[in-house]
């Protein structure tokens, strides 16, 4: 079985919100109709978004670290939002594991949003139905697009390639390898929702240089030279 998902690399996310705006642009102009924006230029703007980038500060000054944290539907393998839906509008696709809402069946009771611990479902205040990330289902399943474009809008927009997209059930896929080799983890594992999306942790890049790397310890001329020098020009000075 296929389970499509995103793997988000917190190590390279710079918090530019390009995924947020590209998501909004693609999905607001798509087949499901616009995603509401009320007072977009007013004092109190509000609207529906599938994807948000949040910022957290870890630690206390001066030992702080800024973590930019993109958050969208995690397409759980055990989605708690699906069984609570009274109409069957909320469902998980059998063929690729994407969790979707049938906007024509949704009655806008908001019960599914209560049953999601991640807060990734948002009621569209204009259409009065629940909306959520579709992994750009209209795009990734569109066979008329060239294959490299069959990816969610956020993935294509990310300037640092912090967002990987693929099948997390295929052990050899780019996303599975990334999760396996770079410590990918799910959010709120305590609930047993088994999120398909994973996050790659931040990593410190450190270079270790030892003493013997600073001077050439294996210089053959040095090895053969048994003369004791006391301040005058040595053979190392003249060799290189």
């Amino acid at each position: 079985m296929t389970q499509l998902a995103l793997v988000i690399d917190l190590n390279v996310c710079v918090g530019c919100h390009a995924c947020v705006t590209s998501c909004k642009q693609w999905n607001t102009s798509g087949w499901a109709g616009p995603m509401v924006d009320e007072n977009p230029y007013g004092a109190d703007p509000t609207g529906t978004f599938f994807n948000r980038v949040q910022t957290f500060e870890v630690g206390s000054y001066p030992n702080t670290e800024t973590v930019h944290f993109p958050k969208s539907c995690l397409h759980c393998e055990e989605p708690p939002c699906v069984p609570v839906c009274p109409t069957g509008a909320s469902y998980k696709r059998e063929d690729n594991g994407v969790v979707l809402v049938d906007y024509d069946k949704c009655i806008g009771c908001k019960y599914c949003s209560w049953a999601c611990p991640y807060g990734v479902r948002e009621l569209d205040e204009m259409q009065k139905v629940m909306k959520k990330c579709t992994l750009c289902i209209d795009r990734i399943t569109d066979q008329s697009l060239p294959e490299r474009e069959r990816k969610p809008a956020c993935v294509l927009a990310c300037p640092t390639s912090a967002r990987l997209f693929g099948d997390v059930h295929d052990p050899d896929s780019e996303v599975s390898v990334a999760i396996r080799e770079r410590g990918g983890y799910p959010l709120m594992p305590e609930w047993g929702t088994k999120p398909a999306n994973h996050y790659l942790p931040r990593q410190k890049t450190r270079m270790h240089i030892s003493e013997d790397e600073l001077q050439r310890a294996d210089n053959p001329l040095t090895k053969e030279d048994i003369t004791v020098y006391t301040g005058e020009e040595t053979i190392d000075d003249v060799t290189w």
Partner: peptide, 23 residues
């Protein structure tokens, strides 16, 4: 557990938008 960072002191600096939302 919400963001998966193991540190006792984590503070949210931005929720990603200034206006209100459904959330």
């Amino acid at each position: 557990t919400a963001i998966g960072v193991r540190h006792r002191q984590i503070v949210q600096k931005s929720q990603g938008f200034t206006g209100g939302s459904f959330n």
